[in-house]
Design a protein around this nucleic acid. Sequence first.
DNA 1: CTGTTTGCAAACCTTTTGCAGAGCC
DNA 2: GGCTCTGCAAAAGGTTTGCAAACAG
Lengths: 162, 162
Amino acid sequence: MSEITTDFNDKTVAYKQLLSDFKALLKKNNLKFTIQREVILETLYNSDEHLTPESLHNLIQEKFPNLKTGIATVYRTLSLLEESDMVTSLSFGAQGKKYELGAKHHHDHFICKMCGSIIEFVDEKIEERQRKIADELGFDMQDHSMQIYGICKECQKKIKEK
Amino acid sequence: MSEITTDFNDKTVAYKQLLSDFKALLKKNNLKFTIQREVILETLYNSDEHLTPESLHNLIQEKFPNLKTGIATVYRTLSLLEESDMVTSLSFGAQGKKYELGAKHHHDHFICKMCGSIIEFVDEKIEERQRKIADELGFDMQDHSMQIYGICKECQKKIKEK
DNA sequence: CTGTTTGCAAACCTTTTGCAGAGCC
DNA sequence: GGCTCTGCAAAAGGTTTGCAAACAG
């Protein structure tokens, strides 16, 4: 427990930082630090995926069955976190938003139409260009989502082999 | 009415093409061509904006007050058009999708998280960069979709005024 | 004619809100 | 102790569905 370079401890350190940011935010706005708010932050932190309010609520009910956390509290806390820029949300399909901790890096996606595989990538030149365009339009850019659809290398081979 | 280079006639020609594509699609699937379906296609065509089902429905009621078009029909037709790739949709805020005709030129989107407004843009440098990255990964790029989320100029003003 | 489509209204689902009691500071 | 926060349930959106009558082919 003395190594500070392990993943475990990195994660712990990062989470402690996040939690203390959260507490500071609450204090600043005269809001109270409750077990529900902590559990929501922690569950978001421990998930690698974008979560819907519902899936987040389910996760919490699984992990903390004793604590009866209401879905309304999940919504209220997510709104609070989003307003404070601690989480970002993306709108997806027919209905619903998905949330993730804002601290995480964003990335773009290649999606293969044949096999459905997703390749993540980040291109600094595109990012830079996006910032520039947003700037020119006076748009305060917070997040972005980019998907490129096509056929991946492996599937192209499969097609040729036929 | 003989010039074929005016906007009006270009638009007419393009719309006729669209309409005949739509009719072909319907016929192919043993579906019927109804006045409601035509009115929905036409109204989408004549609008420059991304429309929610509700705003599309309102537009139709304004323009064709005699025809009592139900909101359910708007939803049903939009789903049909989307499945057939004649329109594309974008999800924006907490709830709701916005639709536009797919036939229009390719573009990317800024989406304001506060007011839901959508600003279209195209940046050749980004397009070029996408092609290059796809190439490096051996990915056969066919299509892409990009959304940048944030706060638009107008909503930033509103925030400051508070 | 026959089977599809429509408008209406009810049903659905996700998100928000009002309220009385519980909990933080 | 005062004020906020919570769970619950009801309300409020937006979207979908069931059905009888209208309509296209």
